[in-house]
């Protein structure tokens, strides 16, 4: 256990060393990091509690729009007397983003969680799409989200202290900051996941997943417990939404599609539903697939065929999902107690 931990730690410190000269490395790890937290969040909902949420990006969107609206000229167009919040407010808005995501989670969860698995899936899918449609269309009568144009510029937390401390250019300092910040977040989220899993909540979630009726007979309130799982996942998603908005400095409704919700599901399933390490491995594999492998494949095979493999993500995710379900439903890293 300690060996794995120190290996991971070494890797995490080695990357910045390399990244100093090649900032693209930071980009990859930051992307992986964001998706790792998202996968961990969905893992609680799907993997532990067995609730199929197909609209996970909705919470991500809410978190992202929260920070984006308040820290950009958008807020002034809604409330002319309020100026955009400066970058340092980022830290204060993180819990706010989580709060809004939790709020949406309650709104979605209360009517849906009592439904059977299949219906829950469709309803959450619908909610996810609704959020996207709302984001796309809430530029009239009142311009809240600025519609398909998206919102920019979104403030980033100040990094001048890093620039001064390490004497590096601003862009590199930003990458370095986000890299470590997300690393810290991942660490915290992993600990939270472990704590919850080995507590009465984790047990209750798994009990519900295994046998709902027996869980009720053993004193577990289905409504409350399912909602808790749902909003736990939502809060992680909302948190990373705000981080994503700050990192990209630009968001639009196109960042929050069904394809991405399914992609995160893919990460959880591929890695192993219910397994914390699995969620992280799944995030790493799928993100690398998207960023590195598919474009590379396209390039290398361009002599033979003109197919841009990056355009066929749906095919890839579909194949992954179906083959995992048929051949290895427990995922790459089976959770300890998979039957």
């Amino acid at each position: 256990m300690w060996k794995k931990f120190s290996l991971a730690l070494l890797l995490c410190l080695f990357v910045p060393y390399l990244g100093m000269s090649n900032s693209f490395l930071f980009e990859i790890f930051i992307q992986i990091g964001i998706f790792a937290v998202l996968a961990l969040g969905l893992n609680v909902v799907v993997g532990l509690a067995g609730l199929l949420d197909l609209g996970f990006m909705a919470f991500f969107a809410v978190g992202a729009y929260t920070w984006a609206i308040f820290s950009s000229p958008q807020i002034t167009s809604i409330f002319p007397s309020i100026a955009p919040f400066s970058g340092i407010w980022f830290y204060a808005f993180l819990p706010l983003a989580m709060l809004f995501a939790i709020g949406l989670g309650c709104l979605v969860g209360l009517p849906s969680l009592r439904l059977r698995g299949d219906y829950l899936a469709i309803v959450t899918l619908g909610f996810g799409e609704m959020i996207r449609v709302l984001a796309n269309n809430l530029d009239h009568p009142l311009n809240i989200t600025n519609g398909p144009q998206g919102i920019t510029p979104v403030q980033q937390p100040p990094v001048t202290w890093i620039v001064d401390w390490l004497s590096i250019p601003h862009a590199l300092a930003t990458s370095l900051f986000f890299y470590f910040f997300i690393l810290v977040l991942i660490g915290i989220i992993i600990v939270i996941n472990l704590h919850l899993k080995h507590s009465r909540f984790g047990r209750a979630w798994m009990a519900i997943r295994e046998n709902e009726l027996a869980a009720q007979a053993m004193g577990i309130s289905l409504a409350r417990t399912k909602l808790l799982a749902f909003i736990t996942g939502a809060s992680f998603s909302g948190l990373m939404g705000a981080v994503y908005a700050a990192k990209q400095t630009f968001i639009s409704p196109e960042s929050f599609t069904l394809l991405q919700s399914i992609m995160i599901l893919c990460m959880v399933i591929l890695g192993g539903a219910g397994s914390i390490a699995g969620a992280i491995v799944g995030a790493i594999v799928i993100t690398l697939l998207n960023i590195e492998i598919l474009p590379a494949l396209t390039e290398h095979l361009s002599a033979i065929t003109h197919i841009d493999f990056s355009e066929y993500q749906r095919l890839i995710f579909g194949v992954i999902l179906v083959s995992m379900m048929i051949f290895r439903p427990q995922g790459l890293i089976a959770r300890k107690n998979h039957v």
């Binding site: 199929l52 399914i262 599901l265 579909g318 194949v319």
Partner: peptide, 28 residues
């Protein structure tokens, strides 16, 4: 297996596969 999520997830996967297969065929 009595797990109801598995067929559901499979169905979603099939859906995605079919969409892109048709896209592939039509593109070629």
């Amino acid at each position: 297996s009595k797990n109801r999520l598995i067929p559901l997830i499979t169905a979603i996967g099939v859906s995605f596969i079919l969409q892109d297969l048709v896209k592939l065929i039509e593109s070629v």
